[in-house]
Amino acid sequence: MPLRTARTAPYLFLAPFVLSFLIFGAYPIIRSVMLSFYITSGPEAQHFVGLDNYLHLLQDPDFWTAVRNTATFALGSVLLQLPLSLGLALLLNRADIRGRNVFRFIFFSPNLMGLVFSALLFMLILAPRFGLLNAALHALFGLPSTTRWLSTPSLVMPALIMVALWLYTGFNMVYFLAALQAVDGELYEAATIDGAGRWAQFWHVTLPGIRPVLIFVVVLSTIGSFQLFELAFLLLGNSSGPDQAGLTIVMYLYQNGFLGGDLGYAAAIGWTLALMVLLLALVQLRITGTGKEAR
């Protein structure tokens, strides 16, 4: 709608947003690149080192521990969460199910707790002796009630994955359910008439129908999992856990930048994380993209 008198309006409307975006969005991104070429001690003392931060990072065993832990968490949560979310969505989407909205709300409710407060709650649920989990395992299966979930290195990641499962399964299910409900019902009728059974319908109608949302959720869950911090940090008592078993990439960034004061190293860790996430997303898109062409 071109109108001479209204020509300045969009610029005025966009100005506050763009201005604050330039200061708190664009500038920090550029500055972050520059910072990653410096060794710093707090925000005042800086010393140019070129690519040394990145080179050092590649040989930093703690960083690789963080990458390994984070990748384990991401793989574990995506592989467990998404099939479960999709399964629940499929169950809820059945025509003969009553109380769909009630179930949807219940499944979604852990998400309302929020990441931080869930972590505080699960700190006690996972506690040995008086924690709910151990009590339940003891009562149901006679397991010992002394399992120290958060101080046994091999149990830290399973515990984190379990809490994330509780927290995010219902959230992802809301997306899947919405996508399923958007699939044209006549397609199923047509498929039935064409002689497709339940499985054939799932493969040829349901999956293609929810494909965009599926990819969206997979990519976003992976990106989110790679930024794991709060859950581990809080559950492990503001530490990286026994034997660094709960050290994540963002936690390592936090330790170096804000406990150690080296903002430059933190920036380098940040960009390395960004690069990994980008590559992963591209790989995922490529895999799902070629899958579509083959069909």
């Binding site: 991104i29 500055r31 972050s32 910072l35 940040g270 960009w271 994380l273 960004a274």
Partner: peptide, 8 residues
């Protein structure tokens, strides 16, 4: 990702 911006 957000953590990139923490330091700057």
């Amino acid at each position: 990702p957000g953590p990139v911006l923490l330091a700057p």
